[in-house]
Design a protein around this nucleic acid. Structure first.
Lengths: 103, 103
DNA sequence: CCGCATCCTAGACGATACTG
DNA sequence: CAGTATCGTCTAGGATGCGG
């Protein structure tokens, strides 16, 4: 069974349906962030997963990566237009979880 | 790292963030369904995963399972109130995937 | 500061066969 | 018809350490 993305629902889930992707995108909604800062906003994420998640999101065109040629290195991440189009979904997921967990 | 559900976003994702859960819930939005019918609406799902997914959703109180004491066996699934509260999220995921995949 | 490489584990998922 | 059991695979994810 491949990643056939039979239906739109799975198409979306294959883009953001991992442990850290939604969280990462969510934090970028508030504005562009340096790599280190972004990572610190996600407690519990391992170094490896942070890099990998960020790479995946970049490859899928959901976030953009900007490298500044300075010392020490500086990297900033931002949402692309495509990534920003997920905003309402991300906020819905957040809101639902908040309300439901209080019940 | 446990399933601490640090934040609302992950809380939600832990409930519906698997390969088949959103799809299953989505189909039940249209109305209650017999087990076999529901399974046929999800091409590619294995027998095992269907049962397991349905069990998980039931345990999380998102769907309800009704057994009719007849021969041959008949089982119907329906959304609970809690499950139905996910409707807007599910439709958003579906719509987004539909629109995005056409771009 | 940022990221890569390596090794490792748990669990998600699939194929098949079997029961009431 | 609905569900269970067993076995196997594959990958998401974690821990640690190195390098520009």
């Amino acid at each position: 069974m491949n990643k056939e993305n039979h239906c739109p629902l799975n198409y979306t889930m294959n883009l953001i349906g991992t442990k850290w992707k939604p969280l990462l995108l969510f934090h970028l909604l508030e504005g562009d962030l340096r790599s280190g800062i972004l990572q610190k906003k996600i407690p519990g994420i391992s170094n490896k997963m942070f890099t990998q998640t960020v790479r995946d999101l970049e490859n899928d065109g959901l976030i953009a990566r900007k490298v500044f040629p300075v010392v020490p290195p500086k990297v900033e991440y931002s949402l692309t237009k495509r990534g920003r189009s997920l905003e309402s979904i991300l906020r819905s997921l957040d809101t639902w979880g908040l309300e439901d967990s209080q019940t």
